[in-house]
Computed example of a mutant assay.
Amino acid sequence: MLQSYKNIYVARGVEVQKLLEVRKVIEEKIAKLQEELKFYTSLLEVIDKAIGEKSFSTAAQAARQETERPEAVEEVKGRSGEVYATVEVYRDKLRIKFKEPVKVDGLFKRFYLDKFLQKYREEDAREVRQGALRQEEALRYELEEQEGEATAMTIYNYRTEERKREILRVLRWTLEKVYGG
């Protein structure tokens, strides 16, 4: 009788050893897949950024823009009351005309474009990947530049009143810093 218990114990020990080996193989596979997922997620973010930077307006959109009337016109003012920009508010875009050209490199680019607006673009890109938003509904912008200075910009698909207020609030702060030195 004692011999049969020893055999069962040894058999279970071998079973446990095999299960531990299988577990180790599965853990290694999961780690490899997680690394692969991280790589593809990063790749998608780079692609989304490139798509946003390369987006363009079609001729039909350009023609429609010329005949559209803004729903409202707002001013971006500094604390001293100085007007920094005029904003034409449309249903799906903001048309911003700077009173003075803004150097594209420097604070405007580093903070407003590359950090602040990029945050919204990444949020929208995530929603596009998840199927909650179509690509053409994602936030994007276009700058009108002359010799490294922006004279105007259009921000498409701001989508909500709250986002619009935040975009203009941060623009005011940025322009205060840019114009104020």
Rank of each mutant, 00 (worst) to 15 (best):
S57I: 03
T58A: 06
A59Y: 11
A59N: 12
A60G: 02
A60K: 12
Q61A: 14
A62N: 10
A63C: 09
R64C: 08
T67P: 05
R69D: 12
R69A: 13
V73I: 15
E75L: 13
E75F: 12
V76I: 15
K77V: 09
R79A: 14
T86A: 06
V87L: 05
E88D: 14
Y90D: 08
R91I: 08
R91F: 07
D92F: 09
K93A: 11
K93C: 05
K93L: 11
L94K: 09
L94F: 10
R95G: 04
R95K: 15
K97V: 13
E100C: 03
E100I: 03
E100P: 05
E100H: 03
P101F: 02
P101S: 03
V104H: 07
D105S: 13
D105W: 03
G106K: 04
G106S: 05
F108Y: 11
R110N: 15
Y112T: 03
L113R: 05
L113W: 06
D114G: 01
D114N: 14
R121P: 05
R121W: 02
R121C: 08
R121D: 01
D124R: 11
D124T: 09
R126K: 14
E127A: 15
V128P: 15
R129S: 13
Q130F: 09
A132E: 13
L133R: 14
L133S: 06
E136Y: 14
A138F: 01
L139P: 08
R140Y: 12
E142R: 10
E144W: 01
E144L: 08
E144M: 01
E145Q: 14
Q146P: 01
E147H: 03
G148H: 01
G148E: 08
E149P: 02
A150W: 01
T151G: 09
T151A: 01
T151I: 10
A152H: 13
A152F: 09
T154C: 01
N157G: 06
Y158D: 06
Y158V: 06
R159Y: 06
R159V: 07
R159F: 00
T160F: 07
R163N: 15
K164V: 01
R165Q: 12
R165I: 09
L168R: 08
L168T: 08
L168M: 10
L168H: 05
R169C: 01
R169S: 04
R169G: 04
V170A: 02
L171V: 08
R172F: 03
R172S: 08
W173D: 02
W173Q: 05
